[in-house]
Design a protein around this nucleic acid. Structure first.
Lengths: 193, 193
DNA sequence: GTAACTCGTTCACTTTAGTTAAGAAATGAA
DNA sequence: TTCATTTCTTAACTAAAGTGAACGAGTTAC
């Protein structure tokens, strides 16, 4: 479990044993039950999450409807926008499955950074990487139809189809559940030919 | 001009006069003519840009069509994904207007960072801020119709309607130029009522 | 066990974007 | 200026998503 975290970090910076021990002393690892709300709309939070096992979902509520904005799974990192902006959250963060996460907060970061400036470097590299990735995802989304987006999802994150309810996927794809149903039927029809 | 840059930086870290002078010694400021291609598909680049005056556009070419992904104007920062990923660019970066930019590259960053670790902090804060902003933009895009996106654009970046050709705006909104024309006509029709 | 809910699907109907084509308006080059 | 190109708009048609409603299957609560 700990090695999963250190393997992840190793992609960005190399840690001495001392530094690893500082991290381990922080009580980062937590188990959370399916359905747990880690963050609710209106709350303030300084917490970031790294998913070791499981799946968490971010969404917000618009006109009484849940709008799912992202799914985070093994080896993904999530820092909700409210942590960066220091304002009450517009988003909910909720556990799709029983999960094991590390939970860290900005205060801890400050402390760790004071001992090991490396961590700032890592956060910088990570943020830049996520920014570039998200840019590419956004651009792909813009220039594809719901059907293409769904086919794309099958390619890139086939696991999500198994772990996540259809109506959440639909919302994640920016369409209504009925449209996703229809679209899936259309694809199966095409495959038969 | 220089003050615009320092004002921007001041939002993230405070600089001593020495540090300011190091920056000024770097020959950062450049004028570029409308139409200049700063980065072409297939090229490698380490350059980042900060817009002091003017407008630049990023796009890629898919099936022979330009897909505009973003516009950057005064006080915006652009680091193309290829700089982060260190791979040949999928994107073009081009000047919509005669512009004044700072051009910095990753090597310079490394050098400046070695003298002033503050700059890594600034880059981290900036990347995190941009990541959160882009997240919000993406989520808004997902959950709105082309018409809502256009109305949203009028609210948030009215200047773009003046400075940028319609067909580039259409592509930026994820629709065809004909659809944008029709949609605009529809809105004007509604306004009459 | 049954009632209440949620979830996924299907259907009919409406609305809107994509497509193809044509023409008018603006821009640029010879 | 004139010709050519690009840009913007309009129109007719097609394809697909939104909407509202209904239904069965599965789940939860009492």
């Amino acid at each position: 479990m700990q090695n999963t975290l250190f393997d992840f970090i190793a992609k960005y910076v190399s840690l001495t044993e001392d530094e690893q021990n500082v991290l381990l002393s922080l009580d980062l690892f937590h188990s959370v039950k399916k359905g747990t709300i880690l963050l609710a709309e209106g709350q303030k939070s300084k917490n970031s999450y790294f998913i070791l096992k499981g799946c968490i979902r971010t969404y917000y509520v618009l006109d009484g409807e849940e709008k799912t904005t992202a799914f985070y799974t093994e080896m993904d990192v999530l820092t909700p926008p409210c942590v960066t902006s220091k304002t009450p959250s517009d988003y909910y963060v909720s556990c799709v499955e029983d999960s094991i996460l590390t939970v860290s907060n900005t205060d801890m970061e400050v402390e760790v950074n004071s001992k090991f400036p490396k961590f700032d470097i890592m956060c910088k590299l990570l943020a830049e990487e996520l920014l570039a990735k998200q840019r590419i995802d956004f651009d792909e989304f813009k220039n594809s139809s719901p059907e293409q987006r769904y086919l794309n999802l099958i390619q890139k994150r086939p696991d999500l189809l198994q772990r996540v309810p259809q109506h959440q996927l639909a919302s994640y794809l920016g369409i209504k559940p009925q449209s996703l149903s229809r679209l899936r039927a259309r694809i199966t029809e095409k495959d038969k030919e």
